[in-house]
């Protein structure tokens, strides 16, 4: 009786919160995997099973590898600066400057602004002739690129917006992590004669490593899921230079109506994310000090 009672309680407390998870996550995911073995075109009620053909064509297409390369490039160049700027800003703010709270709020503001709105503003800033950025570059007689229409520069334009949005957010996490490092550890460094670089290497970086891992994981997922800024500013162009895996999925599914191939791609994205998480998990054992 008691056992049944416990099982009932378990079902009640775990089962009810599981309902939305099952309905909106497990079921669509399972359906998506199932669809990846079909040639459904998103509109017609009929479709055929095609086996692993969608996967085979994805893994042999140049578009896939181009998008994979773009995703890795975008991920690496957003995560690294986000972490470096976040930590540097947090270190700067640790000094106890006047008006600190206001400055923190100012730096954090981009994070709470919707990416779509921000991307629209940035596309004006990037405007080649009258945009603010090229005006400033012009004052210093620097090259004024066509940010969003030059295939060399478009990805960097997207990266700058993303880093700008995320750095303030990373700063808040680092500020908290830094505040938890006891002053005595810096004082030991001070007494032993550790310079700024040595203090960073031996005290700060190891002791904020759990925060760094957390930020890398979240930023990596965030960069795989990046869509808004690409959609508003470049729509994957020019010449596919800003087409990431997720944007390729979007184009396959909702522009080309090739749902079978799109869901195969989505499944590959999930597998890639899983592999990435595993690498980070094992890497963390060696590099992260809790």
């Amino acid at each position: 009786m008691n056992r049944f009672g416990n099982a009932g309680k378990l079902l009640f407390f775990v089962g009810i919160p599981m309902i939305p998870l099952v309905v909106f996550w497990f079921v669509p995911m399972a359906v998506s995997v199932w669809l990846s073995f079909t040639n459904w075109d998103y509109i017609s009620p009929t479709f055929d099973y095609v086996g692993i053909e969608n996967y085979a064509s994805a893994l042999t297409s140049a578009d896939f590898y181009n998008a994979l390369k773009n995703t890795i490039f975008f991920g690496f160049w957003t995560i690294l600066p986000t972490i470096i700027f976040g930590l540097l800003l947090a270190l700067l703010l640790r000094k106890g400057l006047k008006g600190l709270t206001g400055f923190k709020a100012f730096l954090f503001a981009p994070w709470i602004t919707p990416m779509v709105a921000m991307s629209i503003v940035w596309s004006w800033i990037y405007e080649p002739d009258v945009g603010l950025l090229n005006q400033i570059l012009g004052w210093f007689n620097l090259r004024q690129p066509s940010w969003l229409t030059d295939s060399e520069m478009a990805m960097w334009a997207i990266i700058i917006v993303t880093v700008w949005k995320n750095a303030g957010w990373a700063m808040l996490f680092y500020a908290d992590a830094l505040s938890k490092i006891p002053d005595e550890l810096y004082e030991v460094g001070n007494i032993e004669g550790a310079g700024w670089l040595q203090r960073m290497k031996t005290i700060v970086i190891p002791l904020v490593s759990p925060t760094t891992l957390f930020l890398i994981i979240i930023s990596a997922i965030d960069s795989i899921q990046a869509y808004d800024q690409i959609q508003v500013m470049t729509q994957g162009g020019p010449a596919g230079s800003t087409r990431t895996l997720l944007y390729l999925y979007y184009q396959m599914a909702f522009e080309q109506f090739n749902m079978g191939q799109a869901t195969a791609l989505a499944t590959l994205i999930v597998i890639l994310t899983g592999v990435l998480a595993l690498i980070m998990f094992y890497g963390s054992k060696r590099w992260v000090h809790y």
Binding site: P182, E184, E187, V188, I191, G193, L207, H289
Partner: peptide, 19 residues
């Protein structure tokens, strides 16, 4: 500066590097 005073200090809460 402290490093040139040739002294060593022991703190109340040990101040050991956890990593």
């Amino acid at each position: 500066p402290p490093k040139d005073r040739d002294m060593a200090m022991v703190f109340q809460n040990y101040a050991l590097f956890p990593h």
